[in-house]
Design a protein around this nucleic acid. Structure first.
Lengths: 210, 210
DNA sequence: TTAGCTTTTGACCATGCGGCCAGAAAATAA
DNA sequence: TTATTTTCTGGCCGCATGGTCAAAAGCTAA
């Protein structure tokens, strides 16, 4: 008998259940980061974790739930870290710079997680074949970036421009900073982040610092 | 007996051979664009083209050759079009703007091709599991973008900045312009491209046009 | 110790994959 | 026409996949 899902009712997870789920999620992240989404079979994930394949089916309803769990966990971690870094920043210029630099710092410490997140985002599909997380899934991120840009425009720090295009480009540049660093590990990620912050400060027409 | 490969020696392709290869490549592009790389099986590509699966094996040595053929064909088309558009432009600022706007124009007319190219680029793997086209495959593109940026710096049009970071970000912003438009077909691609050109003109510190 | 519940194993299943091939069909040459 | 080569079909192969299950093992409480 497998532990039923827990929709609001009783049924707390046992100690073993909690530990196994965490272990399996961690193993999935590592395997996806190393072999890509298509190379991450349940068999490989189980072998990497040193357990039998059936254990995954026992603790998760299917591969789909496992992938969704990886996404929500890594995504929540990332958002939490970046938002915490931005706390206390006042000007839009400072928020912009912090968003980029904190993102880079987080990438540096969680390379496999971010890699896995990207793989799942661009490869996981619904049963009917449509992407589960498409560009549409970034809507929330776009809106929070737009808030920063709109703030800067209202305060007069930034020139007028289309905030949606700026947000999409910002998000793209940060994602690709990660991809580039991922392919060139000797690349200086922090320097790239600082340069990217400069790039966007100029792009928005902010008063150049110093 | 299948037509042998043609390494420098005689053996021109027959009329049928040429037509079939083109048909299969076109079918592959459409299927990949619609179902994604993982959803593009030989069976589906054949069915979409209205032919038997064996025909693909007859005209191509394998799926790998078919994918490589799609890439080299679409890639060459794209590069040719953009370079032709840039011909005659003198200033780095004009080259920069043209590169972005011509890219958008080409995307608009070749949506499926560009989509398929991206899918293959990020999913096709070598037999050992490593990506066939990684970020490393963009090196050529990065260098030609860097040439534009360096030109602008030498002419005094552009401020000093790291040309590699600028090139990577530029490439990322253009790619994501496509992805965003692909997910939101009602989005105004041309307007996005103009806005993006403005963004980078400001980013490089070019004298703002009137 | 014993009984009952949870967890794990490893074999098994149906499905879809890329690739292969014998023979049919079609095009071309004699 | 007939003979030869090119092209195509449809079935088959071995393999990997995600998922299932009966039985074994482990754990906890009486």
């Amino acid at each position: 008998m497998r532990p039923e899902n827990n929709p609001a009712g009783r049924n707390p997870r046992s100690f073993i259940e909690t530990a196994r789920r965490a272990q399996i999620i961690a193993s999935a992240i590592e395997v996806i980061a190393e072999h890509g989404f298509a190379g991450a079979s349940l068999a490989r994930i189980a072998k990497h974790a040193g357990i039998s394949k059936g254990v995954i089916s026992y603790h998760f309803t299917g591969k789909d739930e496992l992938m969704k769990e990886v996404v929500s966990q890594v995504y929540a971690d990332t958002v939490r870290y970046i938002l915490a870094s931005m706390e206390g920043q006042e000007t839009a210029t400072a928020l912009l710079r912090t968003q980029i630099i904190a993102g880079a710092r987080h990438m540096r410490e969680h390379r496999a997680q971010i890699k896995a997140l990207g793989e799942i985002f661009s490869n996981l599909r619904l049963p009917d074949g449509r992407p589960r997380y498409g560009v549409a899934a970034s809507e929330e991120l776009f809106q929070s970036l737009e808030n920063i840009y709109r703030l800067g425009q209202q305060s007069g720090e930034f020139r007028p421009f289309d905030v949606r295009v700026m947000a999409v480009s910002h998000s793209a540049a940060v994602d690709n900073m990660f991809a580039y660093w991922s392919a060139h590990p000797e690349h200086d990620l922090e320097a790239h982040a600082r340069e990217l912050a400069d790039l966007f400060e100029h792009a928005v027409g902010a008063k150049t610092r110093s």
